[in-house]
Design a binder for these strands. Structure first.
Lengths: 342, 342
DNA sequence: GATACTACCGGAAACGTTTACGAGGATGGC
DNA sequence: GCCATCCTCGTAAACGTTTCCGGTAGTATC
């Protein structure tokens, strides 16, 4: 292991000068800097991260916490890789690296976040899957660690957030349904207190009410995300009498299981029921094609990365100050699944 | 920020004693230890990771490097979350945390690994997507960092590896095909030099030769992974004259795009062509159902985690010594897609 | 030619922790 | 009563880096 001391000895310089040269400080001669960089490359010296962090208090890494496990199986995935890609492209411009912290399904997310933050690996955090009331936000704020959330929350610590337009999804889907004559409209929501479920629920109810239709409590179908949840929803949907004639889905991959479940019941989307869902790679291959709302996840990731940098003092020279609150616009894709009219 | 010094002052102890108490060293009184733990909890003291790593040379984190980006989009995902889950369950038993390092598609994997390792975040590494000749293995070995690979490689540094049985996949698929009378058999492989492609290719050719059938070079279809690759393969498959009557797929999600592409050509799996693929969550909902080989990915992850711990000196008291080389057994699932006989 | 200033560099402290070493008291055996 | 042993704890030296501070030249100013 070659440290800065050996590098300095090799160059007949002091470690202070070597450090300054490597870190681009102004008070070092251009020639010596070149010499130092050359020698560092030859001896392939790399600064020890622990030493550096200990002294400077920064690590150069940003954490992105996601939840995983059986119930989040297919769901978050093509989703997250696109978002990661966008975030990374921003961070890399500033020599920051993204590390993904995945909380296992059997672990408490609050505890997990706490542990990872206190470990001191990261200079900033991005958290997703925000709950309507989310203790993680208060914790991060209390630690004064820069962070942003993917998803709004009613717990507000003044942080930036970027979110998907679940309210728009609910409103637009309902308006399509109502215009086609539907009155028995259902909505599939997550089980837990994740905020997007609340937003979608409220938006659907409001849009229906605005058209003089009522959202029946029995038509609010809560389930696990992913294909299994969708399958289960299909069963419960088929058992309802009268059966709803239309349904809007909260989760990207609910549609897959829903189609499978409906098929088992002899119900064909677009012929026997109208379905509007969210876009993802997997649902693009459903037949009949799904009518859906999506968004550019890579761009969303870029926005997320920039919002984080805004909140980090070291980078506020590059980005305008102040928190970002942005609801990402929806992109509509017409499919065959909402062709059915009652 | 409360450090060990403030904690020691508060307890009227020396920082040495406090450190020993917290780290479970034997030479500290049981009462004082209890006192220390209590105070640490109350003042919610958490050891600074940089200081600890600097002194002890360990971080308590294990890295799992995966590649992402457009061409790895849907593919690796339900796959990896299951593997991660297994790895994590092992590591957590020893208070190690898993952090996921994802290499963007536009970055050189060797450079990325190098950077992350030299950053000094991790005590050990798991790498996947092993190439037939993989410089990362030599690099990790030269750094003497404990590591294991998910996937064999011809670059051998004596490390442990766990792999999926691609040779079995090729052999068993071919045997099924041949028994059904197929002679024009194709195989879909990855584009790059990833070792699994080589293994599958060789196994298919050998199994066919053993039955007096020849693998025609034009029937080796190389493509990107994922649904897009599968779609492309379908087009090239349909263009071949005479068209192969059977195909075996290397990638978990090729089947999705393949089905879509075949459908566009009016070719139905199980009726016009026999298809055998690999299992994943997404392919389970194809229609006609896919005949496929899979494996318990969570168990594979557990094995992977244990293999890594074996190679770390600090944990060799818990696990038997020596490298692990394990080819994971296949689980067969009969579907409708290989029902076609020429 | 004295002063002021600049450019560059060395010295040394500090970051927070672990751990080798030794000191002190208590205990035990003879 | 003495020596050996054990238990418990304090002291201090590391780990590798960054950064403040001061010092030495050299140059410019008058």
């Amino acid at each position: 292991m070659v440290g800065i001391r050996r590098l300095a000895d090799h160059l007949n310089l002091s470690i202070g000068t070597v450090s300054r040269a490597l870190n681009g400080r102004p008070d070092v001669n251009a020639d010596t800097r070149a010499r130092v960089l050359k020698a560092a490359d030859e001896l392939n010296y790399v600064a020890n991260q622990s030493g550096r962090s200990l002294r400077s208090g920064t690590t150069g890494a940003i954490g992105f916490m996601v939840q995983t496990g059986p119930q989040f199986n297919l769901q978050g995935e093509s989703f997250f890789t696109s978002v990661f890609d966008g975030v990374q492209s921003v961070l890399n411009r500033h020599h920051l690296d993204l590390i993904v912290l995945l909380c296992a399904a059997d672990e408490d997310p609050d505890q997990y976040l706490r542990r990872m933050v206190l470990r001191g690996f990261v200079d900033g955090m991005i958290i997703s899957h925000t709950l309507r009331v989310d203790p993680r936000i208060a914790f991060l704020a209390s630690r004064q660690l820069p962070f942003v959330t993917l998803g709004r929350s009613e717990t507000d610590a003044g942080q930036s957030w970027i979110d998907i337009d679940f309210e728009g999804l609910g409103r637009l889907a309902v308006e399509r349904f109502v215009a086609q004559g539907h009155r028995e409209i259902a909505v599939a929501l997550p089980l837990d207190d994740i905020n997007l479920g609340h937003l979608l629920h409220r938006a659907v109810a409001a849009a229906m009410a605005a058209h003089g239709v009522q959202l029946i409590p029995k038509h609010v179908l809560r389930s696990q995300p992913g294909d299994l949840g969708g399958f289960e929803v299909a069963g419960r949907l088929a058992a309802l009498t009268p059966r709803p004639t239309a349904i809007v889905l909260s989760d990207e991959s609910l549609a897959i299981g829903l189609y499978r479940g409906l098929k088992a019941q002899g119900i064909v989307p677009g012929r026997d029921i109208a379905v509007i869902g969210r876009d993802s790679l997997a649902v693009r291959f459903l037949s009949p094609t799904l009518t859906r709302y999506g968004q550019s996840l890579r761009d969303l990731g870029i926005e997320l990365g920039e919002a984080l940098l805004r909140s980090m003092p070291a980078y506020q020279a590059f980005y305008p100050e102040g928190p970002v609150h942005k609801v990402w616009p929806l992109e509509f894709t017409l499919g065959e699944s909402d062709g059915f009219t009652p």
